[in-house]
Nucleic acid binder design. Structure first.
Lengths: 199, 199, 199, 199
DNA sequence: TATGAATGAGTATTCATTCAT
DNA sequence: GATGAATGAATACTCATTCAT
């Protein structure tokens, strides 16, 4: 591997990744055969193995790629924001927007997270996300705006809310990211019982 | 199918389900072969097909079984509790206790939820859970204790928190159900910013 | 693997080994596909893998089997013979007789000997053969009937003669084992120039 | 094919043959892919097919080349030698020297000899070698120095000894050609029992 | 001359399922 | 009820060869 690819080659590669990701997401990774992929793209079987070492390597690249792009979006939303609570909120909004534009990858992530052979590769991205949030929470605690609790628990709770609401209302029910984000932010900040006065 | 099974037969059947569930959870459903299952149990292949119509049917039964037992536990925790907020809390605690005792099924549920061919069977259980919670929330709203919001969004958020925290702190980090439940309940009721006075 | 085989199973296994050996010998190991083997036997592809772990494992078993049977024949010829030179002669005759009855295995052995991946498995048998002969030679040297020379060199030379003559005159030219053996024995004992008086 | 090659082209061609021969010898002909060859030489795939019609044609050329060079060496050793027995001896010495300098080709010859698709191409060279030796033997018989026996049998026996000793002691054990040649010559001339008086 | 891209038949192997005993 | 044997379509992957540039 480690081929020197021409511009045309790079494009092919990207097409393969996109198309595969869609098939994986729709039919599942294991049930999707390499034959299906190359047939669907009207290319020979060798093309696949010219660009990827294996079906597994392809999935891993799709996942890594996606995690990178999500993280980039989150950081672009957050930069220059001083208020830690607001940073958390913006992170949630970035995530919702990203999911909104990559709905088809949702199932793929769930699958990868559920299988021992792929979960490890997701774990790193997950940990990065958690520690990002933990940093904001710690700052907020210092400022006395969040009660003293294990920040990593809070971070995971926020992730749980974001995941669940995006899965249900964006992917399944095709909702609008900004509205789902509103709901997620509200819940994360105030819980069920919270009743902040309107500003 | 629909065999009249002797007591010994029923026992066999149960053993097969338990053992398969463990293999599925550890190595994934697709990668686990029927041969592995029957070899591991030291029986012939015929045995498997005597008790189950197919590998897929087996997984479905495992899932249905698990969902039933989880629901039963939740209801036993809740019955006779008049306070709707308290019922939500008890539901969370029941879930955590169940996960604590069925850790190995966790990954199986995630997998099934991620694949189009199995997700539908989970959807029903999920919907039941959601509408249970929605009922409590509506009651709480009527009592003026929860702000006016789409209750199904709140219900999903609660499920998200419960899922994420149980996955991370019970299954991955092998924590104690009651403590994880405490954290989940706190977050769900008060969010990040809430600061109820201790009772 | 390590199956419990019924009598019928054992027979199938043997048939597969015989048939494969013939195909390997005729067309070469690599060029012979598992498909060819099972098609030629009119069985499903699974049958092959029910009895053998892999194509490679099958070849190894064929080789081990053959080496065992050759050695057994050699020992049966030699036992009870006191004269070491005569024992060498009988070893040569045993080998020729064995080759005469297993002509089809000849090419298989040459192939295996020529490939790094199989040669090691042959080496052991080859070494056994050499040390057998070395033992006889040492005895003959002690008796003053063979000149002082590195016995392992002599042993290899004898093997070389036996191999070459059996390959050329038994396998290629379909000659009679006893006559080829006569020639091999003569050459090994007297070389080109030797001129023992007829006894 | 049959290209008009520039000097640089001829050099490329030679490099390809050398490199391929080494790979074939080390890993086997079938298991070595054209991709491996061109990758290892850092050239594109087209280069290979520019210089050779096919992988098979390449092997055949390597073999033909080698046989030619061996024969040339043998003839250069023998020319001007009047004594037929001495000519046989010099032929053996030439062979050992050649093998000593082309150790890596040894396995390749064994492989080619073992496969029906290549053996025919070797057969011709083998026959040439045999009839060379047969000519010397016949002369020696005429002179009464070798007993009346089928000369082709004797020739094959000599080849067998030479092959086996060179394979074992030159290629496997990395010995010195002149010493191995001494041993081969001794055995061929006198066999096990011969005891010529030292000259 | 040379390259990267593409082809597609072919390979070993797996596996859910069925069947004769 | 249970077993070992058998099926055969399907799978991931390879590779000699060709081609457009």
């Amino acid at each position: 591997m480690d081929r020197r690819l021409t511009a045309r080659g790079l494009e092919r590669r990207r097409q393969l990744m996109d198309y595969s990701a869609r098939l994986f997401a729709r039919n599942g990774y294991d049930p999707t055969s390499v034959a299906e992929i190359v047939d669907g793209m009207n290319v020979g079987k060798g093309v696949f193995y010219w660009y990827f070492e294996s079906k597994e390597a392809l999935l891993l690249e799709i996942l890594a790629d996606s995690q990178r792009s999500l993280r980039r979006l989150q950081q672009s939303y957050i930069e220059n924001e001083a208020d830690p609570v607001r940073r958390i909120e913006l992170g949630i909004r970035a995530t919702m927007d990203w999911v909104g534009q990559n709905r088809h990858l949702w199932g793929l992530f769930r699958f990868a997270a559920s299988e021992e052979r792929f979960a490890p590769y997701l774990r790193r991205g997950q940990q990065t996300a958690v520690s990002d949030v933990v940093r904001h929470i710690n700052e907020a605690i210092t400022q006395g705006r969040v009660r003293q609790t294990d920040p990593s628990v809070l971070a995971h709770a926020i992730l749980g809310v974001t995941n669940q609401l995006s899965g249900t209302f964006l992917v399944e029910q095709d909702g609008r990211p900004s509205e789902v984000a509103d709901a997620a932010v509200d819940f994360c900040l105030d819980g069920l019982l919270g009743a902040r006065l309107p500003v």
